[in-house]
């Protein structure tokens, strides 16, 4: 556990040693602020619904950009040889990278808290601002991000080229984010399955303020699959 945290800590600090972290955070915050507040004032309704609809889409691009270097860079620079000769298990390396990326997303989300506070302040007399829904929305965002991170890490493990890692991660995130859009075109039974594997479908449930174990199990499964694939791809470097 301590070794996982040591890997995570080093990785997290490395983000901020390069300009990429700042650029990604700046892009995320400006896009989410701009795209959220514009329609908000037009609609004149003090709700975070727009925000929670928007951020998962941004994550599709932002998360692979955060995870792309995690393992690809280690392979390219050769430091993977150090990592893989430490007296630790391969999954600990992957878990450390996962936690660091999740920490990075959490920092990004922390900076969006003023959005919620502003919207709460804009709420007029009558219905109170729904802090419960805001809380479960943020939880849902973290779960979406965690699933995308697990997919993005696999992309990064598959190549020594960061850009290739980014593209593989992006394709996987797009698949799991938008697959439910096809549900309408499919017969009922198939549509159910397609909906079930969609990250967005489960997020909509949570963002409504309903924290259902079925949704939590879905995210846990997707994260576990992504991290297992990442670990086995990382271990195959030993072959």
């Amino acid at each position: 556990m301590n070794t996982t945290l040591a890997i995570a800590k080093r990785e997290f600090r490395t983000f901020f040693a390069s300009p990429i972290a700042y650029i990604v955070l700046a892009v995320f915050l400006s896009l989410s602020g701009w795209l959220f507040f514009g329609p908000l004032f037009l609609a004149g309704q003090a709700s975070l619904r727009g925000f929670f609809g928007l951020v998962p889409l941004l994550f599709v691009f932002i998360v692979p950009a955060i995870t792309m270097r995690a393992l690809a860079e280690e392979r390219k620079s050769g430091t993977i040889e150090l990592l893989l000769t430490f007296p630790i298990e391969d999954w600990e390396i992957v878990a450390g990278k996962f936690l660091a990326s999740l920490g990075m997303i959490a920092v990004g989300l922390l900076f969006t808290l003023p959005y919620s506070i502003s919207v709460a302040a804009l709420t007029g007399p009558g219905p109170a601002f729904d802090w419960g829904a805001a809380f479960s929305g943020y939880l849902g965002l973290l779960l979406v991000a965690a699933s995308f991170i697990a997919l993005g890490l696999w992309g990064s493990a598959a190549s020594r080229n960061q850009i290739v890692g980014f593209i593989i991660g992006l394709v996987l995130c797009i698949f799991f984010a938008f697959i439910d859009n096809f549900a309408l075109l499919l017969p009922e039974r198939l549509a159910r399955i397609v909906e079930y594997v969609s990250v967005d479908f489960h997020f909509q449930n949570i963002a409504r303020g309903v924290i259902d174990t079925r949704d939590l199990i879905f995210y846990a499964t997707l994260i576990a699959i992504g991290l297992t694939l990442t670990t086995s791809t990382l271990s195959s470097a030993r072959k």
């Binding site: 301590n2 070794t3 080093r10 600090r13 490395t14 620079s77 430490f86």
Partner: peptide
């Protein structure tokens, strides 16, 4: 290792501290 791969962006002390952590 051959070619001595190191984390270029880290300070020497931080690097050794990291090694101390992962080496338990």
């Amino acid at each position: 290792p051959e070619n001595n791969p190191l984390y270029e962006e880290m300070m020497v002390f931080d690097f050794l501290h990291f090694i101390a952590e992962v080496r338990k």
